[in-house]
Design a protein around this nucleic acid. Structure first.
Lengths: 147, 147
DNA sequence: CAGGATCCCGCTAGATACTG
DNA sequence: CAGTATCTAGCGGGATCCTG
């Protein structure tokens, strides 16, 4: 039984390729920043608070408390907020500070690494603002052509 | 019944914020490139074929056929490959060419817009290769600190 | 105040089978 | 060769309730 069927060989190739892709640094980065709340938290802590519909918190503090973030990011569940903050802390992108008052006070801010990531996201933002209109236009053209 | 409960107001805020986020160009871009197969197809068509474990197709053609892509991207299902290619075509990022031979021959290649996106992804790749090691190191430190 | 624990549901990727 | 159609299971994420 040393031989494999074609299907088995394909399955094997898939496993290897998946492992290869999973190990790719770019893939890891994308997995991280593609998370909806990651980007929004980064934007919030990076003081790019234009991500709030009406109000503006321009020049707002780069250090925010849990409840502040929850208020700013309307619609985030506690679960996702906590989960996301934890993973960002784990990756050394944000720092978490607990002040043992009563009740307890917890604040978050970007680390240097997190700030660096935030800066790179501005590059993405720049591309998006430059080219997304074209993409959207192409999309509409395509849809009307089909219909 | 003109008044709303606190819960209703929160739900309303969430809807508005979600709509706001959905309209954000950066968000749209991230939704697009965070797709596993999108990035891999772009890499394949951008001739960055280092995404194959063993073999190398350096300097490979920027125009590839459906079956070539399927072979290169080991483990992709027909469904996802077709679906992804369609959406990329819809957005004007890749062009699809049908040659009516028997059986039919279909080839894909990047458009200028798609190439531009590919170039921007190299920026992401650069950041990843520069900083992901730090992230991973932080992650391990965090895990051992907890355990 | 900041978060842990639990239940539950929608969505989507994937497998399978069929076709022009 | 290059798809289309259908069905299903797994899982991420939200809602809800509880606590140091």
């Amino acid at each position: 039984m040393a031989t494999m069927t074609a299907a088995q060989q394909r399955a094997q190739a898939k496993v290897e390729y998946d492992a290869f892709v999973a190990a790719c640094p770019s893939r890891k980065l994308l997995d991280r920043i593609s998370d909806k709340w990651v980007t929004l938290i980064l934007a919030a802590l990076g003081s790019d608070s234009a991500h709030q519909p009406g109000a503006d918190c321009a020049g707002g503090p780069r250090v925010m408390r849990y409840s502040e973030l929850q208020r700013l990011l309307a619609g985030v569940s506690q679960k996702m907020l906590t989960q996301t903050l934890r993973s960002l802390e784990r990756d050394g992108l944000v720092s978490r500070t607990v002040v043992p008052t009563v009740p307890v006070t917890v604040s978050y801010e970007l680390t240097d690494l997190g700030l660096s990531l935030y800066e790179m996201m501005r590059g993405i933002k720049a591309w998006a603002e430059t080219h997304m209109d074209d993409v959207l236009a192409n999309r509409e053209t395509y849809d009307t052509r089909v219909a």
